[in-house]
Nucleic acid binder design. Structure first.
Lengths: 343, 343
DNA sequence: CTGAAAGCGCTAACAC
DNA sequence: GTGTTAGCGCTTTCAG
């Protein structure tokens, strides 16, 4: 009773008294069909509650499945959520559905997920690559016509399209903003691991801004955190230094949460902050949080349109597309550094 | 060149000089196989980069696809992101993958998505139902053994498992907290549409708390918003009333963002706020935001375990499981109402 | 231990 | 307009 077989094309055909192919024709608006049969078929479909088996269809047609495989580090991170939504919006117009999974930035989980996706014969593969993951195994699939796009960070071991933010320039602008407001001791709280592309790029932007202003690079001002609590701890540690920073740069949205939380907890309103990536309540903080906003929507859209173009036969060289960030000044970076004794 | 056919079981078999079935046996650890052939097969698989076609397998086995179809209103909403992650964690242990889509709370989009999912022969269907959606068409699939679970709101037209938050009790507790701190004029900014289950339940909790305290229900204090900006506008409108509220209750996380943003913008620190559902920087606001936190993780886990039990043959009656909310007092609700003239 | 044949649900190619 | 045949890639069934 529970294992009630689902109706098939043949069942519908039998019900109407036509051949399976005729039913197929009606449903796919393929060949011609008399209004008469058309109606009967549709009626039978409704009556039996028939729904075509997409897997069977795909296998026969030989083409890929109408799905996009998407691997992101964390489904609950709003930045990746926004990217995913944008991708869905873009590929949805082509009738593609999202097959999603989170890697937790673990290369093994990433590999397991992509393998599963590939076994499903996805039409497009999009991955936010984990540190340490190698993607040379995707070469075969690329050669077989599978569009592969790496998001947020470039993939490794495979020459293909990448869509990333202007990490270096963005971080530079954020730090330069702090410098312009008089800060010379600026702490950097980056994401982890230290080999992470975004971390390295943003740190490079930080260093570039310091150099431009002839501020020596001080390693003791550079820390890291993997999560929110870690960022809070890193903040407390930086502020506890003998010669503490007067401003902090947050390496990503999660780190920003940790920094801001810690500053609120310790009532340190004298520390300036600029964060890479926008966060939900940035405007409502006091002072409102100045950020280097990433354009999640544009990242998703660009990745999707690039992949769709590949699907349509674009054989041009692999590109790395950089989506601009935008400095949104809201106040938290403008606090002048406290006047020093000797000044 | 680009349309390089992917290797099939038969290709591997040919390479080794055995039959397709033998390869299948080795790969699925089905029947016996000599160490000799085993090794050869594995070598050929690696050499050709063969990956079994899951669609073909599923079609033959007849069983459902190893996917969970999940429809949520918005991929970018952190609450639903957290629910999705929890679902993924739970069903992942069983080897199931997430097929996701966002409905934008539009019943037609919801229907289109579920139909697509069903055509893929998903193992489990999970839906955050849109207002106005009818689910009686799912009866057939339920009868065929498909577990269906509605999340966040109950489905309609179909008796099946639902997992919801303790909306009414939670809202009651949040509003009671405000009342306990002296507030008698409390604005309610709910989500939309007004027929939305969560909106109705939370409003009921609000009314219950008022009634308990013998505070008359004032319709003019009840507004709604669909998004963040709408919530800001509703806030401004409420505060502009002749006899304005001294406290506001936010009907969900998005509304909370709008309220808090508007209060910050207008520098109204004298208005108390309690929000339904936690938001990222709640602790860092001044005052820190008191919330009725939903347990997204538990909602996802409960939904997933319930569905998996159904998949394993649980035929017990459909249940509606209520996941408790928790009042997290952080300060924003405690501000005493301004002293009134006549007091 | 291994293979041959049949068939899952559907559609391409060709008939009529 | 419609039906027939064959076959997608895989596994089941039954032989050896």
């Amino acid at each position: 009773m529970a294992a009630n077989r689902r109706p098939t094309l043949a069942d519908v055909a039998r019900e109407v008294g036509v051949s399976a192919k005729t039913v197929s024709r009606v449903l796919n608006e393929d060949g011609p069909a008399s209004a008469q049969t058309r109606e009967q078929v549709l009626a039978a479909v409704a009556k039996l509650g028939f729904q075509p088996n997409l897997m069977a269809r795909n296998i026969r047609v030989g083409g890929p499945d109408t799905t996009v495989g998407l691997v992101i580090p964390d489904l609950a991170n709003p930045f990746f959520g926004a990217v995913a939504r944008s991708i869905e919006d873009t590929v949805g117009d082509r009738g593609l559905t999202l097959l999603m999974g989170s890697s937790a930035d673990d290369p093994d989980r990433e590999r397991a997920l992509t393998d599963k996706f590939l076994a499903r014969r996805i039409s497009i593969l999009m991955v936010v690559p984990s540190v340490g993951a190698d993607h040379s195994h995707l070469k075969t699939h690329r050669a077989a016509g599978l569009p592969v796009v790496f998001l947020d960070r470039p993939g490794s071991g495979l020459s293909t399209d990448n869509v990333v933010s202007s990490n270096r320039a963005g971080a530079h602008d954020g730090v330069a903003h702090l410098i312009a407001h008089g800060h010379r001791r600026i702490g950097f709280v980056g994401d982890l691991p230290v080999k992470l592309y975004t971390r390295r790029e943003r740190l490079a932007g930080y260093r570039a801004a310091l150099q431009e202003a002839d501020i020596p690079y001080d390693r003791s001002l550079v820390t890291s955190a993997h999560d929110r609590d870690g960022a809070s701890a890193a903040t407390a540690q930086l502020l506890g230094l003998a010669d503490p920073p007067t401003a902090l740069f947050a390496g990503n949205n999660i780190v920003a949460l940790g920094i801001v939380t810690e500053l609120a907890r310790s009532k340190r309103r004298d520390v300036a902050v600029v964060a890479f990536d926008d966060v939900a309540l940035a405007e409502a903080l006091e002072p409102a949080l100045t950020v280097v906003a990433q354009d999640a929507e544009e990242i998703g859209r660009t990745a999707a349109t690039t992949a769709l173009a590949r699907l349509d036969g674009d054989r041009s060289r692999a590109r790395t597309i950089t989506v601009p960030t935008r400095l949104i000044v809201r106040g938290s970076g403008e606090r002048p550094a406290p006047v020093l004794q000797g000044a």
